[in-house]
């Protein structure tokens, strides 16, 4: 084959695969395109992104074990960056290692989120971030102790003064700093995103077949659409039988057993799956959907048997793996946190 001919074949391949991608991504009329999340679409409460100093302050808090009653847990204990900002456990371990009732959700791309917690009980990150700290089942720290601990620490006094120009640390600014850090955990450069940018070789043929299934036969796109592969909607998959999820929050029986549709970005990093961690691996999740979900109450009519073959299940898995973009988080410098810990403990012992 001459060089010219090879070039022509390559061009035809690129045009066809580009057209195929566009068709697949837009295929379902009701779906928001499976695009790369745009930083311009983030709704920052202050209207503009936080400063680096604010994000770093949030990171310090995120890794600080003194934000739990017994000084044994930080946010990163359950939302471990090295484990997909989750913990690999079926359900989270709370205060004094007591198991909670739900699986730890990952924290990727919360910047675009519209509701938080598996039951969607709050609509802003600022509202959400302090709730696990104050929960007696989780980090079990009182508001007053939190404020006492942070206000008595020079490191935090200086940093809150630098970032917010405040003399006394309050919960509003703690929550703001946390949220700034959480909004910085952004995964938008997966192989799939590179594929969208025009690198036709970023994902395999099997993954493209998986994408076709995702938007077609497997019907995933009905809920997992949009740039973050979720519409944040609430559905019952027939899994829950006791935990009524959003029904409790809304005090509405029609919402019973419904839980939030999670993002699929970095989904391969965050096993086990479902709100209660009841499915151990991603392949089992697809088999679960293939069977038509569970038999629990109030199951959504969207959940129907899919009749996917083993090859199709494998292709779907291959596609989901292309949504992986691990985020490396450099932990705060140890001496800074360690020094802070020593100072506060000795201060409180006086």
């Amino acid at each position: 084959m001459s060089d010219n001919h090879k070039l022509r074949v390559a061009l035809v391949y690129l045009v066809i695969s580009g057209w195929l991608t566009a068709t697949l991504i837009m295929q379902t009329s009701m779906a928001t395109p499976l695009s790369t999340p745009s930083l311009d679409d983030i709704e920052y409460p202050e209207g503009e992104p936080p400063t680096e100093a604010e994000v770093y302050l949030g990171k310090l808090l995120f890794f600080d074990e003194r934000l739990s009653g017994n000084r044994q847990m930080s946010c990163a204990t359950c939302h471990n960056p090295d484990m997909g900002f989750s913990d690999g456990l079926k359900v989270s371990l709370g205060n004094d290692d007591k198991p909670l009732s739900r699986h730890t959700p990952s924290l990727y791309n919360l910047a675009w989120g519209s509701s938080f917690f598996a039951d969607g009980r709050v609509s802003t990150l600022e509202h959400q971030v302090l709730m696990p700290i104050f929960s007696s089942d989780e980090m079990n720290l009182s508001k007053q102790t939190l404020l006492d601990r942070l206000n008595s620490e020079k490191l935090y006094q200086q940093r809150f003064k630098q970032v917010y120009d405040i003399e006394t640390i309050d919960t509003q600014h703690i929550s703001q700093a946390f949220s700034a850090f959480l909004r910085s955990i952004i995964a938008i450069n997966s192989p799939y995103d590179q594929y969208l940018k025009g690198n036709q070789f970023a994902i395999s043929k099997e993954a493209i077949s998986g994408l076709k299934l995702f938007t077609g036969k497997a019907n995933c796109i009905r809920c997992h659409d949009g740039p973050n592969f979720t519409d944040d909607s609430f559905h019952s998959l027939g899994i829950a039988t006791i935990d009524k999820g959003k029904g409790v929050i809304d005090n509405d029986a029609s919402m019973n057993f419904r839980f939030k549709t999670p993002t699929l970005r970095n989904i391969t990093l965050t096993a086990p799956y479902m709100h209660n961690g009841s499915i151990a691996d991603l392949e089992s999740v697809i088999h679960f959907y293939n069977r038509g979900g569970g038999s629990g109450p109030n199951k959504d009519s969207l959940i129907q048997p899919l009749n996917l073959s083993d090859v199709e299940i494998r292709n779907l898995l291959t596609f989901l793996a292309t949504l992986t973009d691990p985020i490396l988080i450099e932990r705060p410098r140890l001496p800074e946190l360690y020094q802070a810990k020593i100072t506060t403990i000795s201060g409180e012992n006086k």
Binding site: S114, S115, G120, S123, D231, D232, S233, F234, H235, K246, D250, D252, M255, R258
Partner: peptide, 12 residues
């Protein structure tokens, strides 16, 4: 007044 109307299932 201006009142926000939403959908419980689709919070966006």
């Amino acid at each position: 007044s201006i009142v926000r109307v939403g959908c419980k299932i689709h919070p966006k």
